[in-house]
């Protein structure tokens, strides 16, 4: 298994948000370590605890151990791509149901529609920044 799942990995110290609620758990699934670190830094500053997986198969295994509040899911990855992972996670009927946000360069309408039909709650088109991530998570009432 190539998972690099880490249940409480923290990156950076730019904790600009003032929050009092218990942290939520986000699993970041992306084959790019740069994107994982970037996303982790943003999410930890929004009071998330983050874990990482570098492909869909590792993410499915991770979700069997701990059900995240949020899955941030890339599309194009080795082993199992994001769409297959999305379908697998929804088929697992996880409780409580995690929010799944696609986060990908697949930015054309048919792909977005396909992901929504498969159970994605939101869709982030790369490249993205802190404001985009925060707005998307606010829509899901996660921040």
């Amino acid at each position: 298994m190539t998972s690099i799942y880490k249940a409480d990995t923290m990156f950076g110290d730019d904790s600009e948000e003032t929050v009092s609620e218990a942290p939520k758990f986000c699993l970041i699934v992306d084959d790019s370590s740069t994107i994982r670190k970037f996303s982790a830094r943003l999410l930890t500053s929004m009071n998330f605890i983050v874990g990482e997986a570098e492909h869909g198969l590792a993410a499915v295994e991770a979700c069997r151990l701990v059900v995240p509040d949020l899955v941030l899911l890339d599309w194009n990855m080795p082993e199992m791509n994001g769409l297959e992972c999305l379908k697998a996670l929804r088929a697992m009927d996880l409780k409580p149901r995690p929010a799944i946000v696609m986060c990908t360069t697949e930015n054309v309408l048919p792909k977005i529609t396909e992901a929504l039909a498969a159970g994605a709650d939101e869709y982030i088109m790369k490249p993205f920044d802190r404001d985009v991530l925060r707005d998307k998570l606010a829509q899901l009432e996660l921040v």
């Binding site: 088109m125 920044d129 707005d135």
Partner: peptide, 23 residues
């Protein structure tokens, strides 16, 4: 732009009310 439609707009509304014009 993609950045602008990702500020405050739920993805379902983007799909329902917008056409994609190149990027």
């Amino acid at each position: 732009t993609p950045f602008e439609v990702q500020r405050g707009l739920p993805i379902q509304m983007l799909v329902r009310h917008f056409d994609q014009v190149e990027q």
